[in-house]
């Protein structure tokens, strides 16, 4: 069995377990809020901190990788803007846009150590720092123009929420610790390591718990389009940019992996808050999560050729 496929089995297995738990009522839908909060606000920042602080970025082409990752999201943003030419209501378009540009990095993070080794995991973690704010700014901008929220969006509050995002803070603190050579080992690093390890299974379970198959019927045409953008166009764009900027080997595989990840549940939250089409967004996240189990290993294999 290829290492990528072997790495995918536990990742999608835990996602499936999350879905079964919610669907069977073993852990009912309203109870997932606390699990979500603990994972994103406490455990995932610890995981990103320790992964980035311990990484050896001198051994990998981190500069060109980061440039290609940021450029990939900008190019995808431009491509998705082009879809505005298709006649459709503004809220539906904002969800199509989000579908094309938002990525679920946690799936890649869970996959990375087994599929790409420590070097790949470190690069996947590093990609969060610039891309999370970049993608959020693009999506909030589009929602502000074409969303139909009854409330005027408080851009200052949205901005503050982006820069105080625990995920970003975890990345930046990890990068600072890496540069300073601090917390690479010792009791603090061990504690963060132990705490951080819990983040990925919990986030994968919440991804599974969030899958909503009924929403797939909401807008099948637009969902097909957004799925094509996310699982076919985006990885192709990241691959092309990687080749163009001289990214190769494991770094190229991780870069293509970033492009090929499924959609993120955060898109659904933003669609609800800022007047997008939340149901279509739920359908997109569900469809891309299912299909990524097939397309993700194919794209990584292509990048590894």
């Amino acid at each position: 069995m290829s290492p990528v496929v072997a790495a995918l089995v536990p990742v999608f297995g835990v996602i499936a377990l999350g879905w079964v738990l919610r669907r069977s009522g073993l852990v009912a839908a309203p109870l997932w809020g606390g699990i979500n909060r603990l994972s994103y606000q406490a455990l995932m920042p610890a995981f990103l901190f320790i992964t980035i602080s311990r990484a050896d970025y001198e051994a990998v082409p981190a500069g060109s990788f980061m440039l290609a990752a940021a450029a990939g999201f900008l190019v995808m943003g431009a491509i998705m803007l082009g879809f505005r030419l298709i006649p459709m209501p503004g809220p539906l378009y904002t969800s199509l846009f989000q579908g094309g540009v938002r990525w679920n990095g946690f799936v890649l993070l869970a996959l990375a150590p087994a599929a790409f080794g420590e070097e790949g995991a470190a690069l996947a973690a590093l990609a969060f720092a610039p891309t999370v704010p970049l993608v959020n700014v693009m999506c909030v901008g589009i929602m502000t123009i074409w969303g139909t929220s009854e409330h005027t969006p408080n851009l200052r509050r949205v901005g503050l929420r982006i820069i105080t995002n625990p995920i970003i803070l975890g990345c930046l603190a990890g990068l600072a610790a890496n540069l300073a050579g601090a917390f690479q080992s010792g009791p603090v690093a061990d504690t963060l390591d132990l705490a951080g390890r819990a983040s990925l299974p919990l986030i994968l379970l919440t991804i599974g718990a969030g899958l909503d198959f009924t929403s797939l019927r909401a807008r099948p045409g637009i969902i097909s389009l957004s799925v094509t953008a996310k699982l076919i166009i985006a990885p192709a764009v990241f691959y092309a940019l990687g080749i163009l900027l001289g990214v190769e080997g494991v770094a190229l595989a991780v870069l293509v992996g970033i492009g090929a990840t499924p959609g993120a549940a955060a898109a659904y939250v933003l669609a609800r808050e800022m007047g997008g089409d939340a149901e279509m967004m739920a359908g997109h996240v569900t469809a891309t999560t299912l299909l990524a189990a097939v397309t993700l290993p194919i794209w990584i294999a292509i990048a590894a050729l």
Partner: peptide, 24 residues
């Protein structure tokens, strides 16, 4: 043995990954 390990791997990830959560 490899197949059995692959079948156990989701439980491994969910269970062992979450030890910290139980301590919290």
């Amino acid at each position: 043995a490899e197949t059995v390990e692959t079948l156990l791997s989701p439980l491994d990830l969910a269970g062992y990954g979450s030890l910290a959560l139980v301590l919290i």
